[in-house]
Computed example of a mutant assay.
Amino acid sequence: MRILVTGAAGFIGSHLSHRLTERGDEVLGFDNLNNYYDPALKQARLDRLLPVPGFSFVKGALEDRGTLERAFANFRPQRVVNLAAQAGVRYSLENPHAYIDSNIVGFTNVLEACRHGGVEHLVYASSSSVYGANRKLPFAVEDSVDHPVSLYAATKKANELMAHTYSHLFGLPTTGLRFFTVYGPWGRPDMALFLFTKNILEGRPIDVFNHGHHSRDFTYVDDIVEGVIRTLDRVPGPDPTYDPLQPNPGSSSAPYRVYNIGNHQPVQLLRYIEVLEDCLGRKAERNLLPMQPGDVPDTEADVEALRRDTGYQPSTPIETGVARFVEWYRSYHGV
């Protein structure tokens, strides 16, 4: 298939692009290589992809409608995976306009391009952040997500609503994936595992928010990519069991689905740090801090719907995943 992947120089997008080309798909990557974090890391991911047969690349931002429309017109994708977005909860407190530009305006442009380009299926990144102030664990797609606690989360919830509108009005099959804390080689420098590893190796203290008592459904990137591909290959239709008198937020009478994609094995942050210390052979000096604005204490994914519909089965324990990350980090940074 011809598959357009936005955010192809990003963490998940680069891993996904490799997997798609390995199985014989033709992939067009689209990314603006912005400086939210070190563009050199994004370029390094891209440099690994550019020689790969079946991969091509266009540099552009989602909010640049002309560039995006030309990419669609020239490549004529059959399916689209939209992973490009302004990420990060804490940064949304500092620069809210970046989230509106990329996640709202940009996503509108993606939907329009898919609609007019006759795309068979749009898979797009949502986030576990949409669960916001919810406290019932595990988080399930059947739960209400009307209480976001960051603008980032609000834009991801908005993406799901926008996608449903296009599925309903124009018959565009869409699937939203609520990613739970993704980690692994080539990961993002603003994420805890990268920050912790860097500081421990440099002999500096690590900032441990909420005194380390919160838990996260850490999900290894290879498991995430497997779930994305299984979802991409399964074009949704109207849910025959959908009841408008008792609506299920995860499906619809339109060709629309939303799934959690996580590990379903939450780990306390203090345990995560212990595993990292074991892999590095060093102890961390911990700077214990209160919870940050916009953060939530715990996340846990109910992945039953994704397992039922696609056979998704995450299989990488944190001991394995963290060790692989540390091996990559030492190699990439020469430490």
Rank of each mutant, 00 (worst) to 15 (best):
V225Q: 05
L270E: 13
V235F: 05
L232C: 02
G171F: 07
E304N: 13
A61T: 12
R79A: 10
Y124G: 06
N260W: 03
V27F: 06
L62R: 08
G117F: 06
G203D: 02
G187W: 09
E277S: 07
F55K: 13
A154P: 04
N103L: 05
L193I: 12
H214R: 11
V182G: 02
Y220S: 03
V275I: 15
N35R: 12
F11C: 08
I3R: 09
T67L: 09
G66P: 00
S127V: 00
A9C: 13
P77S: 09
Q246M: 13
G132N: 03
G187A: 06
S167Q: 02
R324L: 11
P314V: 01
K198Q: 15
H333V: 07
C279S: 14
V80I: 04
F30E: 02
M1D: 08
T231M: 03
L20C: 11
G54E: 12
H97I: 06
R282P: 01
A140T: 13
G13Y: 00
Y272W: 12
A192Q: 10
A133D: 14
F72Y: 13
S92D: 10
A113R: 05
A163N: 08
Y99V: 00
Q78D: 11
D239G: 02
L306D: 05
P53T: 04
L4M: 14
V326I: 11
I100N: 01
R204I: 11
V322I: 15
F107V: 03
V130I: 15
V5I: 10
V208P: 01
P290F: 12
G60H: 10
M191I: 07
S14M: 03
Q43R: 15
A61C: 08
R188G: 04
P249F: 07
E94F: 13
G294V: 06
P148Q: 03
L33A: 09
V52I: 14
A85L: 07
N32K: 14
E202S: 14
H168A: 15
F170I: 00
V208N: 02
V228W: 06
L288G: 11
S215M: 07
P255N: 04
H164F: 03
M291C: 09
S253F: 13
S144H: 04
A9F: 03
P77N: 02
S215E: 12
Q78N: 12
R230G: 11
R48L: 15
I12T: 10
Y99I: 00
W328E: 09
M1I: 06
L245C: 01
R178G: 02
L269H: 15
V182L: 03
P290I: 04
Q78R: 15
H213A: 06
E319C: 01
L169V: 09
A87T: 12
F325C: 04
G24E: 08
P205I: 10
L68M: 03
G66C: 03
E160S: 04
T181S: 15
A254M: 01
L232M: 01
T108P: 00
D190I: 12
S215F: 00
I273W: 03
D64L: 07
N287H: 14
P249E: 11
H333A: 00
A98M: 10
I261G: 08
Q246D: 15
P244A: 12
E142W: 00
H264C: 10
S14G: 07
C114W: 01
F107D: 09
D25Y: 09
